[in-house]
Design a binder for these strands. Structure first.
Length: 888
RNA sequence: GCGGGGUUAGCUCAGCGGUAGAGCAUCUCGUUUACACCGAGGGGGUCGGGGGUUCGAAUCCCUCACCCCGCACCA
């Protein structure tokens, strides 16, 4: 058996643990040691099997929240598991410059000091942001450190680093050369607050109660009027037509005629457009504002209508809106338009209307659809292979249900608006010459390559933040250079992130990775859910239900937080609250105390005792090793499947309810010298150490700190648990025979405890137990281990075989007849009631099994194993019922 | 409107074709020298409603209801 026996430290530490588990006393010290020893930093060694992943770079805007704690904990679990499993493991950390978000925050920050970014100018302002970034980067690193994240800080990256910026420029130039990046005048989502264009997926829709206004447009040279409906009356100032459906009899005769636009007094045509107008909806007449509505824009192009921009980039009305409105905010203008319409009698019915409004998620400002010249990525040619990569399994998404969402989005994807009118970000490498020629190149051109004119002026727009994030898995490895890191660690293996950035980030990394490296940037994607509060509510500052991960670490230590997150991480949303975390901090405490107990009984010479030979072990030891082995197998399997909840749950159950509750209790008589010879005691201690050592290693990825602290003191093991081998299941440790006997033993002990409670006996009442069974070999087991039954079931004596005296309490447990001899005690009606209920339950189940076996269809159709199982169950129930009836 | 997910013990969830599970909470008993952040035991569910397939359904199919989350639309 391979064990965890390593060199003894020369300066062997105190061989015991403090009485109290105090994470503050060691967490930071251990992390510093790990980092100093270089355990997080792998060599670019291609001979060893590697495992790599990249952090979803947090924004440099501020502190990490509980969602980050979740993602990074899960990543660290995988990373530590793989590292211990022998892989050359790299976890690349870093941060994202987060264009709009960061610019906004710094801007707000400066405004508090009365400084606007325009006062500073672009260059100075960007300098300020760099200062900000440096400060927050440190804070983020510090937080990840406190969580125990074993990321390689020597390879930390930032999306605006020189190397990454080069990758960004390379990709832009290449895509432009390939015709996949273009500049065009188009309708985009404009944020009047941030004064920049944003992409479609940055627009969030909010359901809002508003009003639908009906406005009458008089038909020129007629008494007739056309009534249009709108939620945005201010846009009427920019109407350049009114549309009806060509088949609609109500208005067909008016097509080609004109209406007079109220207030403005302009004459605009009545056109027919079957796409824009649904004759069934409303009045069947639609006002057309090509400059401020997506559908109207399309209709305008189809019908060659002029675009009249009445709202400017700042959200204020333009001169074209008319002197009275120019310069007013669009919402203020709305009220004024309504007032003017009212006065002129053109305002018809107004009714409450609920609809969704597009807002910019970052600042909550209503999006203004606006025609503007921007840079775009032609996305379809990139999306196609990205769809294929998931479809053919080169990339697997967990939970798998997300694949449908992925396809749905990728198959209906629109071109990506990548230019932003910001100052913070990667400046687009496009250069304009005085004659209007555009040059896109890796190096800044001195003069126009087409006409030789100068000076060349660089595009002032920057790129969408997600453009650089899309390159993260390979740009962080030094690409486009073929660096040793790139060759060794790319593609990465697993991506762990929140589902909310599936489209923003994951999909785009897949597209860019395939396009530029020819490989999927990762083969596995694990999308975790949202961390919610205990009631399942989203956490938000306004609700005041936010949990700050660092507060939790401060209170209960990083291990308890990590374990709580892991055991709840199945891929769905995670309900998290203080009490829940408290619950798992009890588990950490349990580990501490179990180790403390073990250390009282483990001697230094033990680890030199050599390997354990299974044949020399007693059933109890073979049993716990078999259970541990099963646990080991399940934990490894669950981790492979990203079932963090299962893995953590398996460990929780094994350590607490098998190792602590049963095994430790069972070896106490031997360890404390109440039973057995010295040789036996030595073996028991040897196994105790083995089980503890392996358990700690299994737990280490989940609880790095406490496991290391204990492990280092355990027999002076060194140098660190985090680079010791992760246990793997070994068939030789499997022991069905020991498992069966111990299972029976546990069941008998439980049954006796049950009888005790049932009969109202206290632990001080001791009595004699009789055990009978068919197999003499098995009965021998109970003779040999009668001291265990006596200890744990608090008996005076165990009689194997033989007849129990009349009046004993009988039961059948896992095939063994047991009988408890009572002291004389008064039996209360409540106790008798419980005896009766026990019988009733048994009768009910026996009836149901008997009925099933009487069904010929069941006997002939069900698998033989199931039928045999039912037969065995019936026999057991019959036997048990007979015995239970004797108890009445 | 399209797509996805959910509805199982008081709470949070796992199970997803063969006797209803876990953690927490609750109740009873217990100061057994690792741990009261503990130990032992108990109670508690017609697995959202209805229909179907099957020898057998929490588990598969259909349907209805309600709740979440995407996407699209919204004059």
């Amino acid at each position: 058996m391979s064990g965890g026996f390593y060199n003894r430290r020369p300066d062997a530490m105190k061989h015991e643990l403090d009485k109290r588990y105090d994470p503050k006393s060691f967490e930071q010290r251990l992390y510093e040691k790990w980092e100093k020893e270089g355990y997080f930093t792998p060599e670019a060694d291609r001979k060893r099997p590697k495992f790599s992943l990249v952090i979803p770079p947090p924004n440099v805007t501020g502190r990490l929240h509980i969602g980050h704690a979740l993602v990074n904990t899960l990543q660290d679990i995988v990373v530590r598991w793989k590292r211990m499993s022998g892989f050359n493991t790299l976890w690349v950390p870093g941060t994202d410059h987060a264009g709009i978000a960061t610019q906004m925050i710094v801007e707000r920050h400066l405004l508090k000091q009365g400084i606007s970014r325009f006062d500073l100018g672009r260059e100075k302002f960007v300098e300020k942001i760099w200062e900000w970034k440096e400060q927050h980067r440190t804070e983020i690193k510090d937080q990840l450190t406190r969580l125990g994240c074993s990321a390689d800080w020597t390879r930390e990256r930032f999306t605006l680093d020189e190397g990454l910026s080069r990758a960004v420029r390379y990709v832009f130039v290449k895509l432009h050369e390939d015709g996949l990046i273009y500049r065009d005048l188009a309708m985009v989502n404009w944020c009047p607050h941030c004064r920049t264009a944003i992409s479609d997926i940055e627009v969030e829709f909010r359901e809002r109660d508003s009003k639908l206004y009906h406005i009458d447009y008089p038909v020129e040279g007629s008494e007739r009027r056309l009534t249009v409906a709108t939620t945005r009356p201010e846009t009427m100032l920019g109407d350049t037509a009114v549309a009806v459906h060509p088949e609609d009899g109500r208005h067909r005769d008016l097509i080609g005629q004109f209406v007079i636009l109220p207030i403005a007094g302009r004459r605009i045509p009545i056109i027919a457009d079957p796409i824009l107008v649904d004759p069934e909806f409303g009045t069947g007449v639609v006002k057309v504002t090509p400059a401020h509505d997506r559908n109207d824009y399309e209709a305008g192009l189809r019908n060659e209508l002029p675009q009249m921009q009445v709202i400017g980039e700042d959200g204020r009305m333009t001169a074209a809106a008319g002197a009275e409105f120019a310069g007013r905010d669009r919402f203020e203008a709305r009220e004024l338009v309504l007032a003017r319409l009212e006065e002129s009698g053109a305002l018809g019915e107004t009714k409450p209307y609920s609809h969704s409004v597009g807002v910019h998620g970052k600042c909550d400002t209503d999006i203004e659809p606006m025609v503007s010249r921007q840079w775009f990525v032609r996305i379809e040619p990139l999306a196609r292979p990205a769809i294929e990569a998931v479809r053919n399994g080169s990339i697997q998404i967990t939970p798998q249900s997300w694949e449908a969402t992925y396809y749905n989005w990728m198959e209906n994807i629109h071109d990506w608006t990548i230019s932003r009118q910001l100052w913070w970000g990667h400046r687009i490498p496009a250069f304009y010459c005085p004659d209007g020629h555009i040059t896109v190149s890796m190096d800044d051109p001195a003069r126009c390559p087409e006409c030789g004119a100068e000076p060349m002026r660089q595009e002032t727009d920057v790129l969408d933040t997600w453009f650089s994030s899309a390159l993260w898995p390979f740009s962080t490895m030094g690409w486009p250079e073929e660096t040793p890191d790139y060759r060794t660690f790319y593609p990465t293996d697993t991506l762990i992130t929140g589902f909310d950035i599936l489209f923003f980030w994951v999909a785009r990394m897949i597209m860019m990775g395939l396009r530029f490296t020819g490989k999927a940037p990762f083969s596995q994607v694990f999308l975790n859910g949202l961390v919610r509060d205990e009631q399942g509510q989203k956490m938000s500052k306004t609700k005041g239900n936010v949990i700050d991960p660092l507060d939790v670490v401060e209170e209960v230590g990083a291990d308890a937080l990590r374990f709580t997150l892991a055991i709840n991480a199945s891929g769905r949303d995670i309900p998290l609250g203080r009490s829940r975390i408290q619950g798992y901090s009890a588990f950490v405490n349990k580990i501490w105390n179990a180790a403390r107990f073990a250390m009282m009984h483990i001697d230094v010479e033990l680890k030199d005792a050599g390997p354990i030979h299974r044949d020399e072990l007693r059933t109890v030891e073979r049993w716990i090793l078999s259970r541990l082995n099963d646990t080991t197998r399940n934990v490894n399997r669950s981790l492979s499947n990203h079932r963090f909840d299962e893995a953590a749950g398996t460990l929780y159950h094994f350590f607490w309810h098998e190792f602590c509750d049963w095994y430790i209790e069972m070896v106490k008589p031997v360890l404390l010298g109440r039973h057995g010879a010295e040789a036996e005691q030595r073996k028991a201690r040897r196994v105790l150490l083995e089980v503890l050592d392996r358990s700690l290693r299994l737990l280490h990825p989940f609880m790095p700190f406490v496991t290391e602290e204990i492990w280092l003191r355990l027999e002076g093991l060194e140098p660190s648990i985090m680079i010791s081998p992760y246990p793997i299941a070994e068939d030789v440790l499997e022991d069905p025979d020991a498992e069966r006997m111990m299972s029976a033993m546990k069941a008998i002990i439980t049954a006796v405890r049950n009888v005790r409670a049932e009969r109202g006996l206290t632990p001080k009442d001791r009595f004699r137990l009789h055990v009978r069974g068919a197999d003499p070999r098995e009965l021998n087991f109970f003779s040999a281990y009668s001291y265990l039954l006596i200890e744990l079931a608090r008996l005076t004596e165990v009689v194997v075989g033989g007849q129990a005296p009349a009046g004993s309490h009988h039961d059948v447990v896992e095939g063994f007849h047991i009988a408890v001899e009572f002291p004389e005690k008064v039996v209360t009606p409540e106790q008798l009631e419980r005896v009766r209920r026990d019988i009733d339950k048994t009768v009910a189940e026996l009836d149901s099994v008997t009925a099933r076996l009487a069904n010929e269809q069941f006997v002939s159709n069900a698998p033989p194993a199931v039928v045999q199982g039912a037969q065995a169950r019936r026999a057991e129930l019959e036997a048990r019922l007979e015995k239970l009836r004797q108890n009445q």
